[in-house]
């Protein structure tokens, strides 16, 4: 069996390398979940201490931007999963375009986020001297709002970089999409970024808009 270009030392079997790469990514994903767990813990403690003002504050976030972004990210998760499936089904061209769609959707997410941040700043929703809402609870909510969405946006950017690298590499060497496991790892990472947002969405946008 001729050594495939993706085979890297110390592996001598592409399948084993592929499994190792995805195992490694799964372990890294666990550490990422623990990273966000620290934030969710802090958010949870303060929401328990100040339930009323957390609800009032999160009602100030823009539900339209939040919902649109949720839709965008979930679609991008679908497209990257399709890309993997198509690549395994030996349709590299189609797979490449699905991957491109993921990149575009991811970028769109950041753009929408940018507009949302601008609006938030205009509405003085950044805790500071001219913070729009009084009391301590709202300032704490928005501290977590900015940090959680900021750290998440950083992860989105990291994911986009990985997808872009994959797109460039597989443009003339389609085997990259099913080769040594880097495609699957990138997809796994992107799914995590999506799942984290799916948890952030209710915490930041739906809270305070449910019962009356």
């Amino acid at each position: 069996m001729t050594a495939s270009p993706f085979l890297r030392p110390p592996w001598d079997n592409l399948n084993r390398q592929h499994q190792a790469v995805s195992l490694g990514m799964w372990i890294f994903l666990v550490s990422e979940i623990l990273l966000f767990a620290g934030l969710f813990a802090g958010y949870g403690v303060y929401r328990h201490l100040y339930p009323a003002s957390f609800a009032k504050a999160s009602a100030q976030t823009d539900i339209v931007f939040g919902t649109v972004n949720t839709a965008i990210l979930m679609t991008s998760s679908l497209s990257i999963a399709l890309a993997g499936g198509l690549a395994r089904a030996r349709l590299p061209r189609l797979a490449w375009y699905c991957l491109l769609a993921t990149l575009v959707l991811g970028a769109a997410f950041l753009v929408v986020k940018g507009f949302e941040y601008r609006e938030d700043i205009d509405k003085h929703l950044f805790p500071g001297p001219q913070f729009a809402l009084g009391g301590t609870g709202p300032a704490l909510f928005f501290s977590f709002y900015w940090i959680m969405t900021g750290v998440h946006a950083a992860h989105v950017s990291g994911g986009l970089a990985a997808i872009a690298r994959l797109l460039i590499a597989s443009r003339n060497e389609p085997a990259w999409l099913s080769g040594g496991g880097s495609e699957e790892a990138t997809a796994l990472y992107w799914h995590l970024v999506d799942v984290i947002w799916i948890v952030l969405y209710p915490l930041l946008y739906l809270n305070g808009r449910t019962h009356g």
Binding site: V45, T136, W146
Partner: peptide, 28 residues
């Protein structure tokens, strides 16, 4: 990772004067 996030919260509080752990502004 939990340490990384906790220390990131310190950086955020110092840099942007957020009230995360500031007792006089409701932090704990």
């Amino acid at each position: 990772p939990v340490l990384a996030m906790t220390l990131l919260l310190i950086m955020a509080e110092r840099w942007f004067e957020l009230p995360i752990f500031d007792p006089s502004r409701g932090g704990d």
